[in-house]
Write a protein that binds this DNA or RNA. Structure first.
Lengths: 254, 254
DNA sequence: CGCCCCGCCGTACACTGTGCGAAACAGTGA
DNA sequence: TCACTGTTTCGCACAGTGTACGGCGGGGCG
C-alpha cells in the first residue's frame, strides 16, 4: 500500500529513473510514415510480406497501434496505391492542339502508368481487394489532367472521356497481365530470361493443339522479352490513338 | 473387457450394422467437384467466403483432404478461373473476311469476356494472386479462336496478335475496374442505384477541385448506371476496332 | 491371408486481421 | 500542484487462415 507509492521495490512498478523515459520521443507514428513503410515492404518482398504485425515491427510499434492512423488494412492499401499514382508526371494541357503533341502526351501518360504498375507488381493483387482506388485524389488528378489534354486537343467532353477510358482501360489491363506475370516471376526469385527459358518448353508443349499460339511462343517470344513487351504496349496504344483520332476526324468531316 | 467384444454396448464401438458401411461409396472427392463447389461458393459470397475449410465442409470432407486433388489454394483458384473462360462462346473464323463480320465477332467475344468478369467480380481479386491464368487451356482456346478470326479477316500474323492484345487488354482493364466496383458494391449489400445515390455526394464533394471530373459525375452518371457502363464499353471497343481497321487499311494502301 | 498403397482426415503450427481494455501521455483548468 | 480529459500506444485474445505431418482404414494384389 505505502510501499507502492513511496519506494516501489515491487517489480514492475514504474520509478522515475528506470521509466522508459520516452516522452513521446517522436510523433512516434503518423499515417505518412505508415504508408511509406508499407510501400517499402511491398516493394521489397511483394504483397504477402505485408502484414500489420511486420509493418508495425518495422516502425518499432505495436501491431494494433497502426489502427489509430489507418482504419484497416484495406484503407492502408488504398493509400499506398494512390500514393504511387501521385508520383506519376501530370501531362500539361498547353500546346495539345496539334495531333502529334496530344498523342505524345497521352502516350507518355500511358507509358508512365504502365511503368508504375509493372515496377510495383504487387499492385495487381491489391486492386482486387480495394474498391474505390479510382476515387483517390492522385488518381483523380491524373484523370483530370488527361481529360484537359484531350479537350484542348479539340475533343468534345464525352469524346474526351471515352478516349481516356479506352487508353486507361487498355493500359491497366495490359499492365495487370504483365504485372501478374512479373509478380509470379518475382516469387520464383529468378531472372526473367532464365525463368522464361525454364518455362517455355512447358508452354510450347501446352500449346500443341493451338497452332497460332504455338507459333507465337516458338518464334515471337524467343528473345529479349522485356523490350518485346515494351514495344508491344506502345504499338497497342498507338492503335487505340489511331481509332480515337479517326473518331474525331469523322465528326469534323460530317 | 468381454463386454466390449461381445455385445458392444459401449458407445462408439463400431458394430457391423451401424458401421458407416461406405465401401468407398463414391470416389468421394474429385477435382471437378472441388472446383465446381469452389465456384459456387465464390459466386454466392465473394472471395473471402472461400476458405479451404468452408469448401471442404460443403463437400462433407476434411479440410486437408482437398490437397490430394489440388496442390494448393492458388492452383484451385487458377482452375476455377480457367473454367469460367471455358464457358465463353468461341468465335468461329469462317466468314470473317468482311469487316462487318469480324468486327461483330470480336465485339461479341469482348462483350462476353467482360460479362464473365463482371458477373463474377471476385475474379479481380484472383488474377493478382494467380500468375499463369493466361496459360490455362480454356483461355488459350479463346485466344486461338480470336487469332483465327483476325487472320481470316486478312491480318498478318503479328498484326492479328497486336489487335487481339489491344482488345483483350482493354477488355480486361475495363472489366476489372468495373468488377472492383461491383465487388465492393456486393460487399455493401446494396442495390447499385441506391449505393450510387449514397456515394455520389461524397464523390462530387471530392471532385470539387477537378472541374472536368466534377462535371462528369454531376451530369453523366446520374441515371441508369448499368446501361451507361455497357454503352461505354461497346463504344470503347469500337474505337479500338477503328484503330485496328485503319492499321490494316494503311498497310494495304502502301 | 498378409501386404502395400493411397485417399482421407485429426491435429498442430505458424500466422493473419483486428476488437477490447488498460496503460501512458499531452494538454487544460483549478 | 492535482485532477480530469482526450488521444495514442500496446498486450492480450479471438476467430480464423493455409497447409505440413503422421496415422488410419479400406481396396487391390500377391
Amino acid at each position: 500500500m505505502a510501499a507502492k507509492s513511496e519506494n516501489g521495490t515491487t517489480p514492475g512498478i514504474p520509478m522515475p529513473w528506470n521509466r522508459p523515459q520516452r516522452k513521446r520521443e517522436q510523433p512516434s507514428l503518423s499515417r505518412d510514415q505508415i504508408v511509406a513503410e508499407a510501400f517499402a515492404l511491398l516493394d521489397a518482398n511483394g504483397i504477402e510480406a505485408l502484414s500489420m504485425r511486420k509493418l508495425a515491427a518495422r516502425l518499432n510499434a505495436g501491431a494494433t497501434s497502426l489502427y489509430t492512423h489507418v482504419a484497416n488494412k484495406e484503407e492502408l492499401l488504398a493509400l499506398v496505391v494512390d500514393q504511387i499514382f501521385g508520383t506519376l508526371p501530370l501531362p500539361e494541357a498547353e500546346g495539345s492542339e496539334e495531333p502529334k503533341v496530344w498523342r505524345a502526351k497521352v502516350m507518355e501518360c500511358a507509358e508512365s502508368m504502365r511503368a508504375a504498375i509493372t515496377r510495383h507488381p504487387w499492385m495487381v493483387g491489391v486492386i482486387g481487394d480495394v474498391g474505390m482506388i479510382y476515387l483517390g485524389p492522385n488518381w483523380m488528378r491524373l484523370c483530370e489532367a488527361q481529360l484537359a489534354v484531350m479537350e484542348t486537343a479539340g475533343f468534345e467532353f464525352s469524346e474526351a472521356n471515352e478516349a481516356m477510358n479506352a487508353v486507361v482501360g487498355y493500359t491497366i489491363g495490359t499492365a495487370c497481365v504483365e504485372a501478374s506475370w512479373l509478380a509470379s516471376l518475382a516469387r520464383s526469385g529468378q531472372d526473367e530470361q532464365e525463368w522464361m527459358n525454364r518455362l517455355l518448353p512447358t508452354v510450347i508443349e501446352a500449346t500443341k493443339d493451338f497452332p497460332r499460339l504455338h507459333r507465337l511462343y516458338t518464334t515471337e517470344v524467343s528473345s529479349e522479352v522485356e523490350a518485346g513487351r515494351d514495344n508491344s504496349f506502345t504499338r497497342g496504344v498507338n492503335v487505340i490513338l489511331d481509332g480515337i483520332e479517326a473518331t474525331m476526324n469523322a465528326r469534323r468531316g460530317r
